[in-house]
């Protein structure tokens, strides 16, 4: 940021939220959201181990999380984030509102507590891998730990860097054997739009991505989506997929945020695309 302010560099792809006030009102610097589908944080839960091998415990997580609060903790400015209840991300072609009663109802910790009780939760520790190298992931983990405790869950926060998380998340066993219950990560908003290419959209059990959700209906719908003849058919299947998904809860979302790029005011020709910035036609006027 200092280099941009001093004119030593012309462009920063992602402006840290805490740096935004430094450039606000500065006529030499322009900010712009280039990726309109932003990024979506998600919480992967271990479907193989208690308590989240019980669907009620996973549904409790939907009631537990206040996406606004999670986003506020890191991004501050409400213009830079929004809560999102769609399985396919918001602002995407597959976005829909099927089965998002939990999202409209908002956070309900009493309901989460009740669902954990219905899941037969008996005080076993829930291990959250807290990614300390990412402010949004680290802050989110702290909030989720606090809400889980309010819902009567015993929580153990394990601070790790990303390399530590990717090693530990491969362990499928119980937390007593070095396993885990929850980890947090994120992907580009546009990635969620495609239930085939995003590995985390699969529900193929232990053959699938970390967290290992399993649901036969979900997999049938993914096949149908891949073979659908046109966009309209895919959107219909996406609705069915979401209707089913928010019942068995493959994962939980933390919110959607929109990083601004920051550039010198005289930089021209930047094209906004999800996930990449083409520079071939960029110039200074």
């Amino acid at each position: 940021m200092s280099a941009l302010l001093a004119g030593e560099i012309d462009f920063i792809e992602r402006l840290s939220p805490e740096m935004a006030p430094q450039v606000a009102g500065n006529p030499r610097i322009r900010t712009e959201v280039l990726n309109n589908t932003g990024s979506i944080g998600w919480l992967r839960i271990n479907h193989l181990q208690a308590p989240f091998n019980n669907v009620k415990a996973r549904q409790a997580m939907l009631a537990l999380i206040d996406q606004n609060a999670v986003m506020q903790a890191t991004f501050g400015d409400p213009k830079s984030y929004k809560p999102c209840g769609s399985l396919f991300g918001c602002g995407t072609t597959m976005e829909n509102d099927a089965n998002i009663g939990w999202f409209k109802a908002g956070q309900n910790i009493a309901r989460a507590r009740q669902l954990f009780q219905e899941a037969g939760y008996s005080g076993q520790p829930v291990v959250i891998m807290q990614q300390t190298t990412s402010p949004v992931m680290s802050n989110s983990a702290l909030l989720i730990a606090q809400w889980l405790r309010q819902a009567g869950v015993t929580v153990e926060l394990v601070p790790l860097d990303w390399a530590g998380i990717v090693a530990r998340r491969a362990r499928r066993g119980p937390v007593s054997d070095g396993g885990w219950s929850i980890f947090l990560t994120w992907a580009s908003g546009s990635a969620y739009n495609n239930p085939i290419t995003l590995a985390g959209h699969a529900a193929t059990g232990e053959r699938g991505w970390f967290g290992w959700p399993e649901d036969a209906r979900h997999e049938q719908l993914r096949d149908a989506w891949a073979n659908a003849p046109d966009m309209a058919a895919r959107q219909r299947i996406a609705r069915d997929m979401q209707e089913n998904a928010w019942n068995f809860v493959p994962h939980v979302y933390l919110g959607q945020w929109f990083d601004s790029a920051a550039m010198r005011s005289d930089v021209r020709g930047i094209i906004g695309l999800p996930d990449l910035v083409p520079f071939w036609n960029v110039a200074r006027s």
Partner: peptide, 9 residues
């Protein structure tokens, strides 16, 4: 001994 896996990264 440190947690982490280069392959996963």
């Amino acid at each position: 001994l440190a947690p982490g896996d280069p392959a996963a990264v």
